[in-house]
Design a protein around this nucleic acid. Sequence first.
DNA 1: AGATCAACCAAGCAAGCGCTAGTGTAAACC
DNA 2: GGTTTACACTAGCGCTTGCTTGGTTGATCT
Lengths: 201, 201
Amino acid sequence: MNAVNESPRRKELTRLAAQLFVQEGFDRTTVRMLAQEMGIKSGSLFHHFRDKQEILAAVIEEGTQNALSLARQALESCGDSARERLHAMARAHLETLLTDRNAHVVALYEWRRLDAAARDHLSHLRDAYEALWEQVIDEALEAGLVHGDRFLVSRFVMGALNWTVRWYDPEGERKPGDLAHELVAMITPAAPLTASESTKV
Amino acid sequence: MNAVNESPRRKELTRLAAQLFVQEGFDRTTVRMLAQEMGIKSGSLFHHFRDKQEILAAVIEEGTQNALSLARQALESCGDSARERLHAMARAHLETLLTDRNAHVVALYEWRRLDAAARDHLSHLRDAYEALWEQVIDEALEAGLVHGDRFLVSRFVMGALNWTVRWYDPEGERKPGDLAHELVAMITPAAPLTASESTKV
DNA sequence: AGATCAACCAAGCAAGCGCTAGTGTAAACC
DNA sequence: GGTTTACACTAGCGCTTGCTTGGTTGATCT
């Protein structure tokens, strides 16, 4: 009912909605489908969410919050070198893309379906996340680890990472840490790895 | 009427549809909106296309065909070095992303709305395009221009390039050639440019 | 014991959807 | 000169959509 309400029930419903939104797309997912997946009738759905849009906003907010806190955590617990921090960010990004896959796919594909108010609110969250990235990229540039335009490098990196939802297979052999390692290796001149890059959580 | 029909009229309608699909998304674009944009009534639309899905398929096919032929052309008219070929591919990719922006955004975002038959047909086209990329990436790897896993490198590069539709401003100062140059520079160890990279069409 | 409240349901409304049927008309073809 | 073809129209069918309304239930609080 309340927009700020974060009851466990609502969280669970949000998780189910995310799954359906990924399977069918937001527009093709009807309130009746959502209700059935949740084990209730379509009318009851509007007790938890004001309207369909609010469900979408809840899904995206959940995913973005998780990404943000995971990234902050990763930066706190990694080493100080620019290379380690870059690797930690990439790895955190890929890990949240894996664990909250549905929410992030929805955020990437259905962002435009948000109404103006929700988009405004959520873009602040996203900006906070991207600011972390720009900071780490800046450090990498200053350390001479990466070369090029600050704006372009961060865009290219974000693109490479976000594109992974298209082809990454969580059941496969490659782990998020491996992908992060390969990406960092690709954009930096060859240099020996520090120990923490292959072991740290 | 015919699916293979490529009358100028149909091409123009396809172009208009692409624009609307980008603005509103495929599902939210009604046949009445499409018809109005085309200056006809909604019923008349089904003289040109069997159903709404066929319009989507036409939009995506148009864009992919253009990308494919532009890429082939670029590879034919560029130098032989791995670096030049990589740059030419990236530049061609960005140029078609610019000139056929609407069609490509639709292809990226609305692919899943295609029915099985259309998806099957179009995925062959897309595979042909991606094969060109893998070939160029292979050459770059063999030449020692780029290091890393063949599969991952091509995915990362495609991601970085396709992500540009999110932030690239065609009115800005950066040209497709500049972006391609920056990308190639980012993923290859520092090396002097050949003359053709900054002048060739 | 009475009041409150979250959570749900049955029923259905008004609007909009993709698409069809049947018709008109002007140009192109034999 | 009659037939065909391309392209457009009007009218509306059958269905689905997001959402509302009014009411029931069972747990919790006072």
